[in-house]
Every structure is written in structure tokens, then in C-alpha cells.
Write a protein that binds this DNA or RNA. Structure first.
Lengths: 243, 243
DNA sequence: CGTCGTATTGAAGCGTCTCAACGTGAGTGG
DNA sequence: CCACTCACGTTGAGACGCTTCAATACGACG
């Protein structure tokens, strides 16, 4: 894993949303992207920070979380390889949430000024990045619906399908299972429920052969049933750039 | 209210986030923005639509909402004059939620191609618009926390302060009160609660002199207490573009 | 003056939380 | 290699916040 791979992760991601020509590619490869490993639960960027870099997730998972005044934590996003969790910091200079490694991961860092220069010279790369932040926002919207209106089981079903669908895009699923290095506490923080109740929901799903989760591996056992339960419609993921 | 006012609303909004020079201003005034009135509860753009325009809210309120498979509605945003609720449609071509008039309002429509041309010629306007969509996303994140982790009273307190704070920016508050043309049902849909419970929370707040709400007018009675209750920290609104 | 959307009230039920105890497995140091 | 620790998962019991249903009151409007 080196500079080339970090740029490659970024390039691969951009290819999903826009047409990259040779000039774009040259500009992307000219970026000096440093990278490092992060250990599980390491806080990569913190609320209040003013980062001078954006981070590209090369491998592993990153979560974003906010804390209430009472100290409760809500996970607001679960990121996968190729994502740029703090791309917003390019224009919103103070971070309003934490960016945390979920499981060990590898992260590339692109200096803001280089990214800004890239956007200036290659406007279609800028448009692709803008689009990326808009999809981010679309997922936030769906999460509001998830925690605001769905029952516990529905929330979990929906989360499972969202992550599964997004992981399939980048070829990180194995059949009906995928790695998800979270604890039941963290799953609860993502769907706005207590860990105890997450546990009971998981057991019910396990018993009924709908989904499973064990030591960082998630299983889709009955995809059709899950879709019903979660009311999952992938429209909000805006998977096809053409549409 | 005419074309000039619609462009003026947009210009005013942009001035809050970036420095507009004469060339920008000329380009903005050259936009041909049509406008119309919309009646309360009118659906302006619908899930699945592929709009060819973005709408600028000139006067009144607009809400955005999503429906679950079971037919429950969750309001995901409450927009104020100057906002561009469907700016995302510039890059995400299919709308994943409804855009609805909350109370009568006036809306300007900017054709996508004109907006795209503007962004191309005036990159700093593009950056300001991008920033706008990022603040939108920041508010979504806070709403996830609101419905995911806070109690009913906290949610309402937080919502009140968010709207109040944003309305103050555009001078649409009168002392400690502001217009909010929603029903208790809609407030419930915004904070993820039943209308019945919203009613009971409102009564408790009314009795305790914390906040009030009556026929489309909201009152902040004890701002300090509200801040405590809602755990409100305006950081996420990114009010100062410099920061 | 009737109608309809909205607000209010009461009562019953249940989904979820909290607290507290216990089990389990991986990692660590003696 | 065992004992200890610690994080995580599991279980039970009780409490409560919120929902649902249903009835009633109110107020704007044609």
C-alpha cells in the first residue's frame, strides 16, 4: 500500500460518478497523498478540529459520530473504502463531528490546497466530488427517516441492506455476508437504540433466519424478507450516475 | 415580487457565504429566474421527479419529506427564504424526497443549464453553492442526532432553537417570536413523534413558560432553559463562513 | 350555519430503556 | 500454561416514554 494505491482508491471512486480522461488521470496521479494505518476506535479527526487535509479511506471502515450534551453518542455515517468522510472540511472549516476508525484501517490524506487546485483545473473532478457530498447528504436524509419513523427491527434491516448494497458496489461482499467491524453497542448508536435492545432484535432475526451478526461479520439470510421489513428502496443511494 | 427579487434572494444568500464581486453580480442578474406562488401543502417537486430547474425560496416556508413503505412521513428539512431546497438536483438527477410548501410561499425557478453555466464561469459562486449543500448536510446530521438520541422535549427545544437561530440571520424574527406555518402533526413528523405527544409536550412547555406555539406562531419564552433542554450548540450551522 | 382540519383529552398497551447480573472469549502477564 | 482482566454479549425484571385509538372541542372558512 503506497501513494499510488491511495490515488488509485480515489480514482476508482471518481470513475463511479464521472468520466475520467487522461488529463484528469494525470492530475490525480500528481497528487501527493500520504497514508497511514489507524487502530480501531482511534479518533482521526475530532469535533472542533480545522483539518488541512481530507482523508480517503483506503481499507477498513470509518464511522462519523456526534455527541449530545448528555454524553450520548449517535453514529451518523458508516464509511467504506473509497469514501472521503471529511470532504466537507474543504468548505466547512470547523468539523462538527468526530471521524473514528471502526476496526483497523488504512487512510490516505490529501492536502486541501492540492484538492482545491485539482478542482480548479479539472472541473469535472470537482463536480464528481460535489456529487459525492450530495449522496452523503442523501444517506443522511434516509437515516433521519430510519431513526425517526421505523421500528427497531426495521431500522436494523434497513441498515443491513444499505451497507450490503454499498459494499457490493466495491466488491467487498462475499456472497451473502460482509465484514462489519462494529460492536452491538455501536450498532445501537447507529440506529438510535440501546445495545440491550439491539441484542434482542438480533436474536429474533437470528432465530427467524432473516439476518445474523457475529464477531464482526454480518449475514444476509433472507434478503427478500429484509427488504420488506426495512422498507428498503435503494433510490436514495443514487447508484447510477446517469440517472 | 419579480425576477429581480428572485435574483436578489439568491444574491443575498450567496453574500452570506462568499464575496460577490461586480462580475459575479452581473452574472447573477443575468439569470432568468421565473417565479410563482405556491399554496400551502402544494407539492412543488415529487419523489422520482427529474427537475430541470432548482427552486429558490423567496418567501414563506418549504419542507422536505420522505415516506416509509408503511406510509409514515418524516420531515427531513424545514427551509426558509433564501434556501435552495433542491440544489442537489443539479447533480443527483432523480429526486429522492418530496419538496412541499408549508404555508403559502413564493418560489423562484432557476434552470439547471443556467446554473451550471454560472458555476463554470464564476467558480466562487459554485463554491458558495457547494458550501450551501454542505451546510444542508450538516443540519441533516444534527437531525439524525435529534431523532436518534434526544427525548421528546429535547427534540422540540432543539428544533425551536435551530429555526429561531436561522431565521434571525435573515431578519425574520420579531423579538422572541417567529412565524412557523406548521401543524402539530407536521411538527411531530419533523421530530419523529406522534402529534398527540407533541401536543402534550407543547402543553408542558407552555405551562412551564419555556416555549409556546399557537396558530402558526412560535414563541421562545425561556431561551436559556431551551438551550439546556435541547443541548443546542449552533456550531453545526456553520454560521460564520470565515471559520 | 355546517363542515373540516386542527387541537385537546383520556385510557390502555407496548416498545424500548435502564439497571444489574452473569456468561464468554480473547488477550495478557506471571 | 494458568489466572486474571476486560470488553463484549446475553438475560431478566421493572419502569416509563410514547403510541394508538377514540371521543370531544375549537376555530376558520365557504
Amino acid at each position: 500500500m503506497n501513494n499510488v494505491s491511495a490515488a488509485a482508491a480515489l480514482t476508482k471512486r471518481l470513475r463511479r460518478t464521472c468520466t475520467i480522461d487522461e488529463d484528469d488521470l494525470a492530475a490525480l496521479n500528481a497528487l501527493s497523498i500520504s497514508w497511514r494505518r489507524a487502530k480501531s476506535n482511534e479518533v482521526i479527526v475530532r469535533t472542533g478540529d480545522r483539518p488541512s487535509h481530507c482523508c480517503v479511506l483506503i481499507d477498513g471502515f470509518i464511522i462519523r459520530a456526534k455527541n449530545t450534551a448528555e454524553g450520548q453518542r449517535q453514529i451518523i455515517a458508516i464509511h467504506q473504502p473509497g469514501d472521503i468522510p471529511d470532504l466537507q472540511s474543504l468548505f466547512l472549516h470547523v468539523l462538527d463531528h468526530d471521524v473514528i476508525a471502526a476496526g483497523d484501517c488504512q487512510i490516505g490524506f490529501i492536502p486541501h490546497d492540492q484538492l482545491r487546485a485539482l478542482i480548479k483545473v479539472r472541473p469535472n473532478v470537482g463536480a464528481a466530488l460535489w456529487r459525492d457530498t450530495l449522496i452523503d447528504a442523501a444517506i443522511f436524509r434516509e437515516w433521519i427517516v430510519n431513526v425517526g419513523r421505523r421500528s427497531g427491527p426495521s431500522r436494523l434491516a434497513h441498515l443491513w441492506l444499505e451497507i450490503f448494497t454499498r459494499l457490493q458496489l466495491i466488491d467487498r461482499t462475499e456472497g451473502n455476508q460482509f465484514r462489519l467491524p462494529l460492536t452491538q453497542v455501536q450498532i445501537g448508536e447507529a440506529i438510535g437504540m440501546s445495545a440491550v435492545h439491539v441484542n434482542r432484535i438480533l436474536q429474533a432475526f437470528r432465530r427467524d433466519g432473516v439476518l445474523d451478526f457475529e464477531r464482526g461479520t454480518a449475514y444476509i439470510l433472507d434478503e427478500h424478507r429484509l427488504r420488506e421489513l426495512g422498507g428498503f428502496d435503494p433510490l436514495y443511494l443514487h447508484l447510477s450516475p446517469a440517472l
